[in-house]
């Protein structure tokens, strides 16, 4: 903020800030209200700011649904696999795009994005058949691999721009002062890109965590949480559905909250 903004600008700034906060917080608040307010509150309007008869009964009921915990475990497995594969494949690809002028770099960039142009719905049948043949069908590994294809384009393009933002001279200085290409990358480039890489990893995790469709198609018994809830909650009362939704949001929000410092650090480097 500048030192002394005019009152008009200040009001505008605060309004914007309020709108931005509301955009994120109101939905979360409403879901939370539905989750802890009990069955009676769901259909009431206007809603009270704080539910008088609040209870964690719905949340507990939800957690007691058979299979929720194992589904959570599958979700985490798939998301971690997706995160790891996106980083392991995405970072070298991003680095290559950022640092080397190779034949077909532009085409490669486009192709990376093109993978997102095919709707999963169309690919569902061939994917299922292929996964059954490979023995990946109905396993968190299969879901993780599928989610990697969704997260990888972002990982490649985001890390490419990350590496592009790191001046080449840093690497050259490292080479001159005794580093090989690999040690220069590990000692100089990687530490500088780390906040951005962490953000990319979290993004991949969240993509996998939130994905429903592919997970529903590719699993039958070993469903990830979202896919499991989709099939189970359809028959549950509304406030239990809210409880499920609320508990799904919590990990993502917590994750982002924990790494927010690194995300800001990334901006610090980018603005230099």
């Amino acid at each position: 903020m500048s030192a002394r903004p005019g009152t008009g600008r200040r009001t505008l700034f605060l309004c914007g800030l309020g709108a931005l906060c509301a955009w994120t917080l109101v939905p979360i608040y409403l879901i939370a209200l539905g989750a802890i307010g009990g069955p009676g509150l769901i259909s009431r309007w206007p809603k009270p700011f704080w539910p008088e008869g609040s209870s964690l009964a719905a949340l507990r009921y939800f957690l007691d649904i058979a299979g929720v915990w194992s589904a959570t475990l599958y979700s985490v497995e798939a998301a971690v696999l997706c995160m790891a594969l996106s980083i392991l494949l995405g970072i070298p690809a991003g680095y290559a795009l950022a640092r080397f002028a190779f034949r077909g770099a532009v085409a490669f960039r486009l192709m990376v994005l093109m993978t997102r142009a095919f709707p999963v719905a169309i690919l569902a049948l061939p994917l299922t058949v292929g996964f059954i043949r490979l023995g990946l069908y109905d396993s968190p590994v299969g879901v993780g691999v599928m989610h990697t294809t969704l997260a990888l384009p972002f990982a490649v393009l985001v890390s490419a721009s990350l590496f592009q933002a790191i001046p080449h001279e840093f690497e050259e200085a490292a080479w001159v002062f005794g580093c090989s290409r690999v040690t220069a990358f590990l000692r100089v480039v990687l530490p500088l890109a780390l906040p951005g890489i962490a953000a990319t990893a979290i993004f991949a995790f969240v993509i996998s965590w939130n994905e429903v469709f592919a997970a529903s198609v590719l699993t039958v018994r070993h469903r990830t949480l979202t896919a499991y809830l989709l099939s189970v909650l359809a028959e549950s009362p509304l406030h239990v559905q809210f409880a499920g939704g609320f508990l799904l949001i919590v990990p993502s929000v917590l994750f982002i909250f924990l790494v927010r410092r690194h995300l800001f650090a990334m901006w610090g480097i980018a603005s230099k």
Binding site: P167, E169, A174, F177, G178
Partner: peptide, 19 residues
């Protein structure tokens, strides 16, 4: 490679490692 040439270099924009 540069590291085996026994030299040091000062770059135009310094390239002092920020981390």
């Amino acid at each position: 490679p540069p590291r085996k040439r026994g030299l040091a270099m000062v770059f135009q924009n310094y390239a002092v490692f920020p981390h």
